[in-house]
C-alpha cells in the first residue's frame, strides 16, 4: 500500500451506506406522522360530526337548555356548569402556589418536606376517578349541609383538589427557574425572605405559574369521571331558578353532556356530542390563548 495517495473523497458518505440509519429515521418519522394523524383525526371527527349542528344552529345550541327534542336540545346548562367549575377551581391556586413556594423557598431537607414531596408526586398520579370518590365522601356526604349534596359546588371543589398537584408541580418548576441572583440582590438590600419572595421571586416566576394554572383549568374543564361519581347529571330539564338553587341543586358540565350524548343509543345524539366537544375544545383553546397572551404581557412588563 506504500505510495498510495490518500484520497479524501473516500471519507465521503457513500450513497446507500447509511441505509439502516435511514430506516430508523423513517420509523421515527412514521411515529411523528402517526401523532399528527391522531390529532388530525380527532379534530376532523369532531368538526365533521358537529357539522350539521354547527352550520345550522350553533348559537341556539350553546344558548338553550336540554330538551328531549334533538332538534332543539342545547348545552347551555353544561356550559354554565363548566364556567362555574372554572371559577371555583381558581380557589386551589393560592394553596397550590403557596405549597410550591414552601417547597422551593422555605423547605429544608426534613422528613416533613420529603413527606410533602412524596404526596404531591403521588397525588399527581392518582386516577381522576379516585378524586371523585374523595369528593363523594367529603363534599357530597359529609358536607352536605354546605354544598347541597351532589351540586356544582361539590363537583368544582373536587376538581379543585384534583388540579392541586398540577398547580404545585408547575409552580414549583417556575419558581425553581428564577435565578438565585434575584434573591441575593433582594437580601442584599435588606429585604426579609417573604419580601424577597413577594417582590422578586413570584413576579419573576409569574409567566410559568400562569401557564401551569391555566393548564390546570383546562384539565378541570375536560374531566368527567370525578363529576360522574360526585353525581353530576348527564343533562336535566328543570332548573334555571335562583342563583343559590343553581349552585346547590342538580348540575351538569360540558364533558358530562358529551359522555351522555355519546352513550345515547340513537345515533342522532352523536352529532350533539360532537358539537358539545367542539364547544369544549374551543373553550379550552380560548383559555390557553388567555394564558399565552397573559404570559407574553407579563414577560414584556418584566422586560424579558
Amino acid at each position: 500500500m506504500r505510495g498510495d495517495v490518500f484520497d479524501p473523497s473516500s471519507l465521503q458518505k457513500q450513497p446507500g451506506a447509511d441505509r439502516s440509519g435511514q430506516a430508523f429515521f423513517g420509523l421515527i418519522s412514521l411515529a411523528v406522522l402517526a401523532a399528527f394523524v391522531m390529532v388530525g383525526a380527532v379534530f376532523w371527527d369532531v368538526v365533521q360530526g358537529s357539522w350539521d349542528i354547527s352550520t345550522s344552529r350553533m348559537w341556539g345550541f350553546v344558548s338553550t337548555s336540554f330538551v328531549s327534542n334533538p332538534d332543539e336540545a342545547g348545552v347551555a346548562q353544561g356550559i354554565r356548569g363548566s364556567l362555574i367549575i372554572a371559577g371555583i377551581v381558581i380557589l386551589s391556586f393560592p394553596i397550590g402556589i403557596g405549597a410550591a413556594v414552601y417547597l422551593e423557598e422555605y423547605a429544608t431537607d426534613s422528613w416533613t418536606t420529603r413527606l410533602i414531596q412524596v404526596t404531591v408526586r403521588n397525588l399527581a398520579g392518582v386516577p381522576s376517578i379516585v378524586y371523585g370518590l374523595l369528593g363523594l365522601a367529603v363534599f357530597v356526604q359529609t358536607l352536605k349541609g354546605l354544598t347541597g349534596g351532589d351540586s356544582v359546588i361539590s363537583g368544582a371543589l373536587t376538581l379543585a383538589i384534583l388540579v392541586l398537584p398540577i398547580v404545585i408541580i408547575t409552580s414549583a418548576e417556575a419558581i425553581r427557574a428564577v435565578p438565585g441572583s434575584y434573591r441575593d440582590g433582594a437580601y442584599g438590600l435588606g429585604a426579609t425572605q417573604w419580601e424577597t419572595i413577594r417582590t422578586q421571586v413570584l413576579p419573576a416566576a409569574m409567566p410559568g405559574i400562569l401557564t401551569g394554572t391555566v393548564l390546570s383549568i383546562a384539565r378541570a374543564l375536560g374531566e368527567a369521571a370525578p363529576l360522574l361519581v360526585v353525581g353530576a347529571a348527564g343533562y336535566y330539564t328543570t332548573g334555571n331558578n335562583d342563583f343559590l338553587e343553581q349552585m346547590r341543586g342538580a348540575f351538569t358540565a360540558l364533558p358530562m353532556n358529551i359522555a351522555t350524548f355519546t352513550k345515547e343509543p340513537a345515533a342522532i345524539w352523536r352529532g350533539h356530542a360532537a358539537a358539545a366537544s367542539l364547544v369544549l375544545l374551543v373553550l379550552v383553546f380560548l383559555i390557553n390563548l388567555v394564558a399565552i397572551i397573559g404570559r407574553a404581557r407579563i414577560a414584556k412588563r418584566l422586560g424579558r
Partner: peptide, 20 residues
C-alpha cells in the same frame, strides 16, 4: 402538536372511539 394531543379531554376521545 403533542401538547394539543395532551389537552384533548378524554370524553372527546371516547366519542372519537365510537364515531371514528
Amino acid at each position: 402538536l403533542i401538547e394539543t394531543l395532551a389537552s384533548i379531554p378524554s370524553v372527546v376521545l371516547g366519542l372519537f372511539a365510537i364515531s371514528f
